[in-house]
């Protein structure tokens, strides 16, 4: 029971990070794109107004997931911790560059192209780096002997599965954030920005589906067990595809932009939870399962209680944040 609740909480938070992190990362990239193509006054204003108040919140989702994972499944700290020193550290440095340079560029005195470039490019590199953790969790990239855990970096570099996941991550970031910014530009009644972001949504939509299929294909050879489980729950992925098609239709027709973004969230929701659900009981193939490596019931229950108490605090606060900034047309328009 505890393991199910625990992994569900964690997965929901990782999904939250996937969505708002993608919006954030992609927006950074588009912001830089707008800068080099001199479109400053349309899209960048919209991006700045969305990003400024919420960027710190994004980071917390990731930390929350990691700490929660260590809490509910302590052994994962040992395995992932030992194996991921190098890729993890690189992702951390990228996150650090991104976070601090965003603050420097945004609150600092001068707008600098270097800061913006770093901010934009890390927005694509970080998801690429983080997505390799999911790849590693599929097994085959870690050796364990005498409790000595090692990551096979070479294998990771030549694995087609690993590269397709990386590409899917980057394309998803661009698509999710474009579809959100299309909606947000619409709320802000910024026509130029709206048209630009709509175009990007349509451009990046197709590749997300294409690469998802490739992920399926390569997983079938890389981890047949997981692939088989995914086929059995295939209806989830069909729903994901349907949500995607409906979203693209809305965006194409320039109608129901809010619903279109929600549909994109559903597209990723179905796929992400389908992927996660079929990944179980393994957290890390074949070393960590949620049943064998769950924490003690005492700790598990106290973590769940703390989580509920935390939600009581956070949900109203997040609601306030959204009311004041994101879903506030006056604010979005820059008044």
């Amino acid at each position: 029971m505890i393991e199910t609740i625990g992994i569900s909480i964690l997965w929901v938070f990782l999904y939250g990070y996937l969505i708002i992190g993608s919006i954030d990362f992609g927006a950074g990239f588009y912001s830089y794109y707008a800068k080099v193509t001199n479109k400053k006054h349309t899209i960048r204003q919209v991006i700045d107004r969305y990003l400024s108040p919420v960027w710190e919140v994004t980071n917390v989702f990731l930390v929350f997931f990691m700490i929660g994972l260590v809490g509910f499944f302590p052994a994962s700290a040992f395995y992932f911790g030992t194996a991921l020193l190098v890729p993890g550290s690189i992702a951390l440095v990228l996150l650090a560059i991104r976070g601090s340079f965003y603050a420097f560029a945004n609150y600092g005195a001068r707008e600098s192209n270097v800061y913006l470039f770093l901010y934009g490019i890390t927005g694509l590199l970080i998801p690429a780096a983080l997505s390799t953790v999911l790849t590693i969790s599929e097994g085959g990239f870690i050796t364990v002997d005498d409790s000595n855990v090692q990551l096979l970096l070479g294998e990771l570099f030549v694995s087609p599965y690993s590269w397709i996941v990386v590409m899917l991550a980057i394309v998803s970031v661009l698509f999710i954030s474009a579809s959100f910014l299309t909606y947000y530009a619409n709320v802000a009644k910024d026509k130029d920005a709206f048209e630009l972001m709509r175009k990007f949504s349509l451009i990046w939509g197709g590749p997300t589906i294409f690469l998802s299929f490739l992920v399926f294909l390569t997983l079938s050879t890389h981890n047949p067990e997981h692939f088989q489980a995914m086929v059995e729950e295939g209806w989830l992925f069909v729903l994901s595809l349907l949500a995607f098609l409906a979203a693209i239709l809305c965006i194409y027709k320039r109608k129901f932009m809010g619903i279109a973004f929600l549909l994109v969230c559903f597209q990723y929701g179905f796929a992400f939870f389908g992927y996660g659900y079929t990944h179980l009981p393994y957290i890390l193939y074949p070393h960590i399962t949620i049943y064998e490596n769950v924490t003690s019931p005492e700790m598990g229950i106290s973590l769940i209680l703390a989580f509920l108490a935390g939600l009581l605090l956070l949900v109203p606060s997040l609601f306030l944040l959204m009311r004041l900034f994101i879903f506030n047309a006056e604010y979005a328009r820059g008044r």
Binding site: V70, Y79, G81, G88, A306
Partner: peptide, 19 residues
Amino acid sequence: LLWPSFMQAAGHVISLPLF
């Protein structure tokens, strides 16, 4: 990343305040 055994032990006992 640097203290995996410690975090494994800490995860068992002291993860509540970390969380």
